[in-house]
Amino acid sequence: MTVLRLAGLVKRFGANPVLRGIDLTVERGERIAILGASGSGKSTLLRCINFMELPDEGRVEFGGQVVGSERDGRRRYAERELTQIRRQVGMVFQHFNLFPHMTALGNVMEGPLTVLGQDRVQAEARGRAELARVGLADKADAYPAHLSGGQKQRVAIARALAMDPALLLFDEPTSALDPALVGEVLGTIRALAEDGRTMLLVTHELGFAYHVASRVLFLADGLIHEQGTPAEVLKEPRQAATRAFIASHKQFSL
């Protein structure tokens, strides 16, 4: 079953094209790692998928439905429709973006409570279950300021999961973490992958991409420059740019 299909996606910031025509189909259960140098459009691609940024050209199909309607040769998006899409797409941010005025449990309950309109009992049960899934059942009452970076990111993951998303987007989820805390977050994401969740993951952790992703995309200059299985892209890249990128990341590894 196809979760997401992008066709000819273009995004410009002013005159500067960031995405120059992305075609991508995501099947259910796929785990796609997106690699690329900074400025290659990785984050913008994720943000166009849940319409935090509106694409300038191209189409997004979500769950078989084309998003937006075409008028005067331009695609128009109604805020109400985009809100509906975002409910089904979970996003995890580089800087966590937890709500500092709510406890860990409050953060995780917030979506079910406010967006899905669940009652408090139901939302709390769900919230506690998701916190337990990311190994933070005992931190339910802690405020974000009292959590480590790794714990914050795991709460953020639980917050996204509480919405039962059909698709999870991870935007460099470990880039803001101390090296010692990266492992716990990657472990959590890996467990989700093993559960069969559909996910797109922008990352610089090539080893993680190699072991967990089912497909790897390499973005350069706003285009998918190369894609394939992790072994194909990471071990035997065909494109010079991909080879250079991977070499630069391996430079200091043992």
Partner: peptide, 27 residues
Amino acid sequence: IERGQWDAARALGMNRGQALRRIVLPQ
């Protein structure tokens, strides 16, 4: 209020009013 707070609220599927009432104004 940091942009990331709006981002997180919108990514959950909140509309502008919900984000304002639940996330931005209390802070």
